[in-house]
């Protein structure tokens, strides 16, 4: 009865070690994202404030870097061969900075560059039709959004989605996703009229 030994604990569970943190990041765990964000914020801001011209929004750089790291764990199922999450986060920050100032040569090692996240697109870089699609996607019900997210964004197979969600079987997943896509297309068609 190990719970008897503990003091009453109302706090959120924290990810205790680096390996577990990385595993949870790969799984897209938002608590792990929160921990990543809180743990390295002070160090990141201090490091970059010393090196970057006054007037640049370092907090914004930090937020973008944390999201890029997180998305890279989720999308590429990143496995760091060496170095820690913190080193990687700082490397991403430096790369973003280099890109911002149009530096011809990024600061960081190649193995970090290879695992740069794909998605660096923002809404204002999208063509109008895609912006409309984004708008309609956000209007979909939560279950539909989640179903499309698991397939297109997380890249899970239907079998994996069954295991994760408890839907009956792969056919149920397929037909539900089709219905969601149909709904999305109808919405775009409707707003295009």
């Amino acid at each position: 009865m190990n719970w008897l030994l503990t003091f009453v604990d109302f706090s959120l569970p924290m990810v205790k070690n680096e390996a577990l943190l990385q595993e949870r990041l790969r799984e897209g765990d938002k608590k792990a994202l929160g921990q990543l964000y809180s743990d390295y914020k002070a160090a990141f801001l201090a490091y970059f404030r010393e090196r970057v011209a006054v007037g640049m929004d370092i907090e914004d750089l930090y937020q973008d870097s944390v999201i890029a790291v997180y998305q890279n764990y989720v999308l590429n199922q990143l496995q760091l061969k060496k170095g820690s999450v913190k080193t990687y986060l700082f490397a991403v920050g430096k790369n973003k900075l280099a890109a911002k100032f149009n530096a011809s040569k990024p600061y960081v090692k190649e193995d970090f560059l290879l695992s740069q996240p794909y998605v660096e697109m923002d809404e204002d870089q999208m063509p109008m039709e895609q912006q409309l699609l984004l708008k309609e996607f956000k209007q979909l019900g939560e279950k539909c959004r989640e179903m499309l997210r698991l397939h297109y964004y997380r890249g899970l197979t239907d079998k994996e989605i069954v295991a994760k969600t408890g839907y009956k079987d792969e056919n149920t997943i397929k037909s539900y996703r089709s219905r969601c896509l149909k709904k999305l297309k109808e919405a775009i068609h409707g707003s295009g009229k």
Binding site: L33, V119, D122, M126, L134, F137, R149, Y152
Partner: peptide, 22 residues
């Protein structure tokens, strides 16, 4: 994929606003 990635990025930004400051 691009649409959902951008939507995810926007959601993550909002989510980070709720994370407590160190």
């Amino acid at each position: 994929f691009e649409v959902i990635s951008v939507s995810e990025k926007q959601e993550l930004k909002n989510h980070l606003k709720t994370v407590s400051e160190p």
